[in-house]
Amino acid sequence: MGKILITGMSGVGKSTALQLLRLRGHRTVDTDTDVWSRWVTTPDGSPDWVWREQAITDLLAGHATGSLFVAGCKTNQGRFYPSFDQVVLLSAPAEVLLVRIAARTGNPYGKRPEERNAVLHHLATVEPLLRATATHELDATAPVEIVVRQLEELAGH
């Protein structure tokens, strides 16, 4: 049994990995929905998409059997790191992220030039912070089946 946070930049393959993990019988939660996240205004007036802390607290506290794979990349996720058994950063080069974002159909984020610029900015500024706090980093350029097998191994399967 393990509680695994899968984090990383937009386009790295978090949702794709979750889909395959779910098909393999694992409990999965994609936090990029209104159920798990909400918009807030930061002190500088900019918007931020953060976890609904009570919902995440209840999810993690209520999980008792099997593995739970949670995916997301939020500014407040670090508050929950002690409740996870592993924090896994999926990483890939900028060119891979931009190609994946351009090709995906299930998520419109990253199609506009300013969003692509934001992805590159986050890759340079946010990913190093994630790397510094992750328990593991996986190369998301590997086939998704390999990434999922590595995630399962980290969960004790």
Rank of each mutant, 00 (worst) to 15 (best):
M1A: 10
G2E: 02
G8M: 06
G8A: 08
M9E: 13
M9P: 01
M9I: 11
S10Q: 06
S10G: 07
V12R: 05
V12I: 10
T16G: 02
T16E: 03
A17Y: 04
L18G: 03
Q19N: 14
L20P: 14
G25P: 06
H26G: 04
H26E: 08
T28K: 14
T28W: 09
D30K: 04
T31E: 02
D32W: 03
D34E: 15
D34Q: 15
V35Q: 12
W36P: 07
W36N: 01
W36F: 15
S37M: 02
S37E: 09
T41Y: 12
T42G: 07
G45A: 01
D48N: 01
D48M: 03
D48Q: 02
W49V: 01
V50E: 00
W51V: 11
W51Y: 11
W51H: 10
R52S: 06
R52M: 03
E53T: 05
Q54A: 15
L59R: 00
G62N: 07
H63K: 12
A64V: 11
A64E: 13
S67G: 09
S67I: 01
F69V: 04
V70N: 00
V70I: 08
V70D: 00
A71Q: 01
G72V: 01
F80V: 13
P82I: 06
P82F: 10
P82Q: 06
S83Y: 07
S83I: 02
D85T: 09
D85M: 08
D85F: 05
V87M: 10
V88A: 03
L89S: 03
L89D: 02
L90D: 00
L90V: 07
P93K: 11
P93D: 13
V96A: 15
V96Y: 10
L97D: 05
L98C: 07
V99E: 15
V99P: 02
V99M: 15
T105D: 09
T105F: 00
T105H: 13
P108T: 12
P108K: 10
G110R: 12
G110C: 14
K111Q: 14
R112G: 03
P113Y: 08
P113F: 08
P113V: 09
E114P: 00
R116P: 11
R116E: 14
N117M: 06
V119F: 02
V119D: 01
L123I: 11
E127G: 05
E127Q: 14
L129A: 04
L129R: 12
L130N: 05
R131D: 01
A134N: 08
T135K: 07
T135R: 03
D139E: 06
A140M: 11
A140V: 08
P143W: 08
V144T: 14
V147S: 05
R149E: 13
Q150W: 05
Q150H: 13
L151A: 13
E152H: 06
H157E: 08
H157S: 10
